[in-house]
Amino acid sequence: MTREDSVPGLADTRHSWLRHPMDNPRPHRRRNLVLGALAGLAVVGASAVWLGRSAPEPVATRCTPGRVDPERLKAHVRTLSETFQPRDHAHPENLERAASYIADALARAGGRVRPEPYTAGGKSYRNVIATFGPDGGERLVIGAHYDAAEGAPGADDNASGVAGLLELAALLGGNPPPMRVDLVGFTLEEPPHFRRGTMGSKVHARALRTRGEAVRAMISVESIGYFSDAPDSQRYPVAALRLRYPSEGNFIAVVGQGDDKALIDTVHRALRAAKNDLPSESLAAPRGLEGVDFSDHASFWDEGYPAVMVTDTALFRNPHYHTPQDTWDTLDYARMARVVQGLQCAVEALVTPTPTSQLPH
C-alpha cells in the first residue's frame, strides 16, 4: 500500500499529511487534518450510501473454507521480506527473484502460470499471473503487489498480501472454481511508479481493457497481517469515521467506491460467512477520501472495472508502515489465516453470484 508522492498538485495537499512526521511542516499537517475532517463530515452528512458499514445480516453465502496454516503464511512472509531484499524499483534483480518464487508457488498449487513482462526506466520487470478454473469467459482477478517501499522489508506491505495470495492458490488448486480466477502478483506498486503507467497493476488492467476482457470483479489484497486489540490502535483519515468504526485495530476491512457498493457488500458478507470470528468492516466512499485508492484496485477503476481492496488499513494502524521495522515478526499469522479463509469465501460468492449479490460487469 502506498501514498501518492509523484502526481503534481497532490503530493503537497491531499496526501501530504500521510508522510513520515519528520517530513511534514507542522502548519501544513494541521491545515490538512482540519480540511480532511471537514470533508469527512460533509461526506457522512451527505449520504449513508457513500460512507458506512455494510449490514452484517443476512449472510448471503454459506461457506466452509479450507484450512490455512499460519506457519506457511509466516514462511512466505519471512522469505519475501528477508531473502529478497531490498524489493524496491531500484533492485530489479531482487524483484525478479521474488517473481520466480511466486511463480513456482503458484504453479505448485496447480495454477497455469505465465509472466507479464514490461520495461520501465530501461529496466525489466514482470507481473506473475496464475489461472485457475476455465481458460475462457469472464474472470475474477485477485492481486497483491510484491514490491516494497524503499528502505522497508515490506512484511505487512505487502509480503502479507502475497502470502495470502499463495495460500489462496493452494485452496483453489484443490477445489477449482467454475469460473476463471486469475491470481496476479503485481510489481512496482510503490513510489516512484505509484499511479504512473509503469505500475504493474496499471499495465495489467490496461492490457485487459485493450483486449476487451470481461472482468466480473477485482480484489486487491493489500497489507493483511497487522492487528492490535489495544485501545485507540486504529486511526482514520478523518475524525468523523471514529464515530462509525472501532478504535481497536483488530478487524479486516473491505474498501471501495460508492459505485461498487454491491461488490463491497458481497465481499464483506463473504468474509463474515467464513465464520472464523475475525471482525470485518466495510467502507464505500468517494475516491477522494484518503486511503480509498491507495493500492492496485484503483488501476482497475481507471479502466472501468469494479474493484475493492481487502486490507488491515496499513498506515492507519501499523506503526511500522514504510519503515525498516515492517518485519515478519510483527505480524499476526493466526488472524491473517482467517483473512485468507474469508477470501476463499469471497471467491465462492463472486464466481457463483446469487440474485441478492449481482455485480456490474
Rank of each mutant, 00 (worst) to 15 (best):
P279G: 11
N250L: 01
D293N: 14
A284C: 03
L289S: 05
D293G: 14
N276W: 00
D260K: 09
V267P: 01
S282D: 01
P231L: 11
V267A: 03
S280T: 15
A284D: 07
D296H: 07
A274N: 04
R242S: 08
P279E: 10
A284P: 03
V254N: 08
R272I: 03
R235P: 00
R272V: 04
L289M: 15
L271P: 02
D259G: 13
D260Q: 13
A274S: 12
E290T: 15
R272D: 02
L283H: 03
A285I: 06
A273F: 04
F251N: 11
R244G: 13
G291V: 09
G249A: 14
L243A: 12
R269Q: 15
S282C: 00
G258H: 09
G249V: 00
D229M: 01
D232W: 13
V292C: 03
D277P: 04
F251A: 15
R287T: 13
R235M: 07
V255S: 04
P237T: 10
G288M: 12
H297Q: 13
P279K: 12
Q257W: 00
L241T: 05
L271Y: 03
D229N: 12
D296E: 10
E248M: 09
S247L: 00
R244S: 12
R242D: 03
A230Y: 05
A230K: 15
E281A: 13
A273D: 06
G288D: 03
H268A: 13
P237Y: 08
R242A: 09
A262Y: 08
S280F: 10
L278H: 07
A285C: 07
T266V: 11
P231H: 12
D265M: 00
F251W: 12
F294C: 11
L289N: 05
D232G: 11
N276L: 09
A262Q: 15
L271N: 04
N250S: 14
H268D: 13
G291A: 11
Y236C: 02
D293I: 14
F251G: 10
